[in-house]
Computed example of a mutant assay.
Amino acid sequence: MIAPGFADVEAQIWMWMMAMIRPGAAMVVTPVFGAANVPVQIRIILAFMIGMVATNSASFDLPADTAISLGNFIFVLGEVLVGVAIGFSLQLGYSSVVIAGETISNAMGLGFASMSDPQTGQSTPVIGQFLTILATLLLLAIDGHLMLLAVIVESYSALPPGYAFLGAELAWGIVKFGGTLFSMGLLIALPVGGALILIQLIMGFLARTAPALNLFAVGIPVTISAGLVMLAITAPIMADTIILSLGMGLDQAALISGGK
């Protein structure tokens, strides 16, 4: 015969497992935690730990139906949508560096040079890979990963499990915030990209004044060298803009966690 206390333990573990759906869904799409090189077991353990903390900050009732029922399906669907929306908001701010890297790489003539991105497992330009690593280090330096976990835990108060749904206003807010992805990417690439445009204009004037000049032999080394120098000079300015973009992603995630 099973002791009466075991029934309470089973119900508590079941509640923790249902509470880990939201942080688990967020970690699939969020930077750092959602990287391809992060083991799935680590994500499951972190999601379970966050679910345990969340049950202490907000109480909720599990669906009274069986595991395979419409009530449980709606419960899980709401948790997944909210978790994905929170993680995707930060991912939008983080992905602006990829657009900046592609813009700078194309302007430098390094669009053909690419390498594997450990965050996504996809091939990205080398400058984009450099900016991605920089954005990851900056995200960890400003404790962005801890802020994200705090946002997920706080979301259980405003959007308790079972009543968490991504409304039309929240979805439209994510869509509008996605428009800033391209503007922030161009803003990050502006210092280096602007200098490279001036260099391209100068090379165009040289091509007109000295038609015998081989632009492929002179222009490409000059453009690449100038781009690398400008990257070193403007790195602090680009870092500030990347932090601003990451902060906007965290702010958008906080708005979603508050149900606004």
Rank of each mutant, 00 (worst) to 15 (best):
I2R: 12
P4H: 07
F6A: 10
A7T: 10
A7K: 13
D8N: 13
Q12C: 05
I13D: 14
M20D: 03
M20V: 04
R22P: 07
P23A: 11
T30F: 04
V32C: 11
F33S: 03
G34H: 07
A35H: 12
N37V: 13
Q41V: 12
I42N: 08
I44D: 01
I44A: 12
M49D: 11
T55E: 07
S57R: 14
A58L: 06
L62C: 07
T66A: 09
G78E: 00
G83M: 08
A85I: 00
G87S: 05
L90I: 15
G93L: 01
Y94F: 15
A100G: 08
A100D: 02
A100W: 01
G101K: 03
T103C: 03
G109S: 14
G109V: 11
L110R: 02
G111V: 05
G111E: 00
S114P: 02
M115R: 10
S116G: 11
S123N: 12
V126L: 14
V126Q: 01
V126G: 00
I127W: 06
T132A: 03
D143W: 05
L149C: 13
V151R: 01
E154G: 10
S155R: 01
Y156E: 02
F165T: 08
W172G: 04
W172H: 09
I174W: 01
V175T: 09
T180S: 11
M184E: 13
G185N: 04
G185C: 06
I188N: 03
L190N: 05
G194T: 09
L198V: 15
I199Q: 00
I199N: 02
I202A: 15
F205C: 09
R208H: 12
R208D: 08
A212F: 08
A212P: 01
L213E: 09
P221D: 12
V222T: 13
I233A: 05
A235L: 15
P236H: 08
I237M: 14
D240E: 13
I242G: 01
I242Y: 07
S245L: 00
G249A: 02
L255W: 07
I256C: 01
I256W: 01
K260Y: 13
K260A: 14
